[in-house]
Nucleic acid binder design. Structure first.
Lengths: 349, 349
DNA sequence: TTGAAAGCGGTACCAT
DNA sequence: ATGGTACCGCTTTCAA
């Protein structure tokens, strides 16, 4: 037995000839178009037999060309996927994306050809938008290129971005972890433990996800009439030894850190100075934590798998309703209890 | 600014009209067909300008239909990818596949739509072979469906399978970790440490990868004139307490296990009986090991990333040379030194 | 140099 | 019920 000569796939017309019917009859048999054009069982069987004998399989591109649908959902990451797939960053999103794609009968295109050679990937390369290959796409990545998002949007290409990204003049449809809500929730929780004097530790990043956290934090602090005189709250990023000294001296009882990195740094500094967490100072983190950190942080959770699923659903939704203006979607981030929040100690005199 | 109405991508004819040239001229400008149909710079610029103005991007399906090439490589797994992607099984293969796809300018289609709903995935579903969407594919998975491999091969579809799979009457092109060579290498190593009397622990699996290990093992044992009277060598799988007792009593000094699972089980049994590894008995494993096992096993390594890369290269090779009969490729598995092999103890009288 | 036209493999409408 | 036929968007002769 030898394989068929490569590149000689049988076509509908071959099937038609063998079955002694017209090509369009074959097409109708295949599409299983039960409603409109009923086909006598006998003919159907002849066609089916011919299909089997020739090992005919429909050509996907031709179908796509006709139907303007691929059942293909694109995944564009602005960096290579798999090197990072292990870090939870991409991994869990992909899990959800794949799961939902499988359930809804879509295939997934991972756009790797768009590699620019410098580790980054671009949508538009020499005037070609590879994403067009897919009916719609899910985009994600840290180093998102906003100009490309804008053009994609202007072109009317159906996509969602995981994580909020703002581009002036365009309303990028995003699936957004609700950092804002989680930040207010965490402040509420601390306040519920009697804390009134807060400090905020800020990352140097100026991206939307951080803006959301800061918004939520500020909103809660103001709403509850809390005090925060920290540099982070004023807009300075990082953590200095001086500020840790100040913390030890001052009346702050609660610290909210934007990242585990900062929280760990703080914890180290406090320990050196004999200050205990959470007995003396409570600390919460506005980031998803992982195993193996030096404390079990009170923090938030990013429901990544769910977000992946939702992103796929949103894209499919856009395909089904092309006329509805694409909206962003907020996904709640549960607050994860840890062991770094306790009741506020007595106010010092 | 509002996005273009969705689903109204501009076509070449639109560009042509705007530029005041014919559609085929546009096509030639785009293909950059410098040789045959020279186009005056002035016209070229007009066309380019029109392309830019309309934000035209070529339709991938149409191109594909014409050219019979997508620059799309398929990845078909017989189970969902990402749930397992963390286990090294899939993960590192994908790493290599993605890397090579990016380097060679191919996109990757993950065939998720082929889910049968029972956790398995099939290539052929209601007579359609989704893989056709891609120019060629890399298949992998533990629960490979041989009938599908056979049909794919008979259809002349270009693909490789990661891992050896035999189907009567078809020569499935595979990229094969050289378990056979690694097994002989490990026996050689043990023999080099003075071992003459061996025992073999066999998994219940009857797949090609195990057959390869067994072949290699048997070959080396016979070539070196070694002794093996173990049940595993005779064809029985598993490990019984009786055999461990026998091992302790008997003269065997070396055990080769097909899996970490068996090796660990053995180690436990030996410890209970006060037998030390490797001082009293050396143990080697014919499987890639991982962190966190109870011993640092002398074992083999599966160069998964490299295999992924090679698989992509093989597919591309098949695309470039459709007439060459597809051959399988053997990839050497390095032998990883551990701490479970030592010199053979003195023969007991 | 440039345009007209014939497909690539299907789908779907419109007659018959 | 069936077949003829006009596209889908693009590439590639072949003439003009």
């Amino acid at each position: 037995m030898t394989p068929k000569r490569r590149g000689q796939a049988p076509r509908q017309s071959d099937v038609a000839r063998l079955a002694g019917v017209s090509q369009s009859a074959v097409s109708r048999v295949i599409s299983g178009d039960v409603d409109s054009a009923r086909i006598p069982e006998e003919t159907r069987q002849r066609v089916l037999a011919a299909i089997k004998e020739l090992g005919y399989v429909p050509n996907a591109s031709a179908r796509n060309l006709r139907n303007k649908r691929n059942r293909l959902i694109g995944v564009h990451t602005f960096e290579a996927v798999f090197p990072h797939a292990r870090d939870d960053f991409y991994f869990e999103f992909l899990l959800g994306i794949e799961e939902r794609a499988e359930q809804t009968g879509f295939d997934l295109v991972m756009f790797t050809s768009t590699g620019a050679g410098d580790g980054r990937r671009r949508v538009y390369r020499d005037g070609t938008n590879r994403l067009n290959l897919a009916d719609g796409s899910v985009l994600l990545g840290v180093s998102t290129d906003r100009a490309e998002l804008a053009r994609l949007w202007a072109d009317g290409y159906p996509f969602v971005h995981i994580g909020r990204r703002e581009v002036p003049g365009a309303e990028i449809p995003c699936v957004i972890p609700d950092y804002r809500g989680a930040a207010t929730g965490i402040v509420d929780k601390l306040a519920g433990h009697g804390h009134r004097r807060f400090a905020y530790l800020r990352e140097p990043m100026e991206m939307e996800p951080y803006a959301d956290r800061r918004d939520g934090y500020r909103e809660a602090v103001e709403r509850l009439g809390l005090t925060d005189r920290s540099p982070g709250f004023r807009g300075e990023s990082g953590l200095t030894g001086e500020w840790i000294d100040e913390l030890v001296r001052g009346g702050e009882t609660a610290v909210v850190a934007e990242s585990v990195r900062l929280a760990e740094q703080l914890l180290g500094g406090l320990r050196e100075r004999g200050v205990r967490v959470p007995e003396d100072i409570s600390v919460a983190v506005l980031e998803a934590t992982w195993e193996g950190t030096s404390a079990q942080w009170d923090s938030l959770e990013i429901p990544r798998v769910a977000i992946g699923r939702i992103a796929v659903d949103r894209v499919i939704d856009m395909l089904d309703h092309p006329d509805q203006p694409p909206e962003s979607l907020l996904v709640p981030c549960p607050i994860v209890p840890g062991t770094t929040i306790a009741a506020a100690r007595e106010e010092r005199p």
